[in-house]
């Protein structure tokens, strides 16, 4: 009997449309675009700051414009999704021994969320106070 295996091709550019799990993965991956754009924008801000008060004022006017605010709103959403997707899988990469077992995953995830909340709160409070 001769063999004639049939190969089902995977569509190279649209495979992630097959199910929700893959779409969530791709959403997680594209968060990086917004992080990169934000950090690049921030870097430009640092250059403007270096160039003196006038240039800095122009930069501040730029980030206050409506398109900039809309961009930052979207970027904020993606940054939060990045944080959530990153913290939720931390127990997989990080196994901490405890007695004859491991520290439960929810404690590791919870600690990350706790630090995230703490850092954010401190930053906001400092901004308000200083």
């Amino acid at each position: 009997m001769s063999r004639k295996p049939y190969v089902r091709e995977v569509p190279k550019a649209t495979w992630y449309m097959r199910n929700g799990r893959y779409l969530r993965y791709m959403a997680r991956e594209v968060t990086c675009i917004f992080l990169a754009l934000y950090m690049a924008g921030l870097t430009i801000g640092l250059v403007r700051l270096m160039q003196g008060p006038d240039k800095w004022e122009t930069y501040l006017a730029g980030v206050s414009s409506t398109p900039a605010v809309i961009f930052h709103l979207i970027a904020f959403g993606f940054a939060c999704y990045h944080a959530k997707s990153w913290f939720d899988v931390t127990p997989k990469a990080m196994r901490i021994p405890q007695g004859n077992d491991f520290v439960p995953g929810r404690i590791i995830v919870g600690t990350h969320y706790g630090i995230w909340g703490g850092v954010s709160l401190v930053a906001l409070v400092l901004m308000g106070v200083l």
Binding site: Y25, V89, K92
Partner: peptide, 17 residues
């Protein structure tokens, strides 16, 4: 790190981890 392997594993092996 799509993580799909661990989600479908019938024996909770967690290959992704």
């Amino acid at each position: 790190f799509v993580g799909a392997c661990s989600e479908v594993c019938p024996k909770d092996v967690d290959p992704a981890g």
